[in-house]
Amino acid sequence: MGRRLGAIGLLAIGTDARAHAFSPDAGHFYNGLLHAFVDPGQILLLLALALLAAQRDLTVARAVAVGVPLLALAASLLPARPEWLAFGEVWVLVAAAAVAALVAWGRVLPTALLQVPVYLAALGPGLVNGAELARESWLIPRLYLSGAALGIFFLLMGLFVLAASLKRYFEGVAAIGMRVLASWVVAGSAMLLALRWA
């Protein structure tokens, strides 16, 4: 047991961490893939959507899991201009605040009605990625955008599975926790929005 633990420990000791890619073009894909993970606005939006999916029924969860990455990809394929980036970022933050407010509110609403903000929210990351692509003309579009859509999907699903699992095993507490967390998302989004005009 001790030796096994020692071996695992050796693996964890890092020296230089130089990131190697199997192909020089893979960087374009990773650039897109990581975008959702390093953009605070997108993190907040995807967290809010994941919480909404875990809080509501299967139809809403399906709209979030399937509809959001696909719609984001579709929106990013629209012809965009670099100056649209700011508009896309504001869209993302407003959508994050709106979706999170729905979670914090917790009111039972018709499923069809709930899908509207979900799909509108999905356009935000798409607009951002499209404008980013227009600004950074050196990026290879098909690699960057496929990475970006996958990044959105992975982060969304990771957060959704976590929230849904917590809800399943700690039903009452998790339901309250999700609403509280959603209020933090609203607060965070509002602050990031304010910073744009500070």
Partner: peptide, 23 residues
């Protein structure tokens, strides 16, 4: 109240925070 108060606080705190950010 156990969850309404901790939900209310950050929501309203954000309004104060926005005012602070905007000077």
């Amino acid at each position: 109240a156990i969850w309404v108060l901790p939900v209310t606080f950050p929501l309203v705190m954000a309004a104060g925070g926005v005012a602070g950010v905007l000077g």
